[in-house]
Amino acid sequence: MSASLFRTVLARHGALAAKRSLAGNSFVRGKATLPDLKYDYGALEPYISARIMELHHSKHHQTYVNGLNSALEAIAEAEAKGDFTKAASLAPLLNFHGGGHLNHTLFWENLAPASREGGGEPDGALKKAIEADFGSFETFRKQMNAALTGIQGSGWAWLAKDKDSGNLAIVTRANQDPVTGQLVPLMGIDAWEHAYYLQYENRKAEYFEAIWNVINWKTVAQRFEKA
């Protein structure tokens, strides 16, 4: 995934890289960029409005991308100066903006228009795994919605695969904390208010119901098989 998230800028910004190397550190820096969506802003209507998609992608996600690049730059500067206290103090910013970038990138990919891959139910090995670990798809769906409803504040709920046991689990993360470690995120739902408020206002239960119509199970199955 990191290959698709980070684009090396050495070629395009050779001058900048050369300037950086003056400090004695010659390294190739990857810069995070906003990924293009594989569908139009209006393509998830009526379940997610075009207005929400546009703001969510072009404003919110862009802010995380910018914040991540700033944090990485500030950390690199601190590192170059040997100021490790300063570098360590930037960890929360890296986690927040880096997590925001990762989470949204995964999210856009695990959504699709209802007229195309969106909605329905998984099949094949993923379907079997969900049935084995949750009893049925419907039980899984209900548990995921209960997890989303239980988030106190901003955050995400994920279907994740435990690399060690191979089991599936539903996990929630506060704010933009990413799913890392032995858990591999397969499918995420954004429970931040900016993900639904313009359309659903305080009725978040309606958003949590509607979003199943645009879940891209093909993407989720591919992540499951790779994990």
């Binding site: 504040g153 901003s154 931040w192 208010e193 900016h194 408020y197 313009l198 206002e201 305080n202």
Partner: peptide, 8 residues
């Protein structure tokens, strides 16, 4: 500073 306080 919740988004519901200003987002609309």
């Amino acid at each position: 500073m919740w988004e519901h306080a200003y987002y609309l």
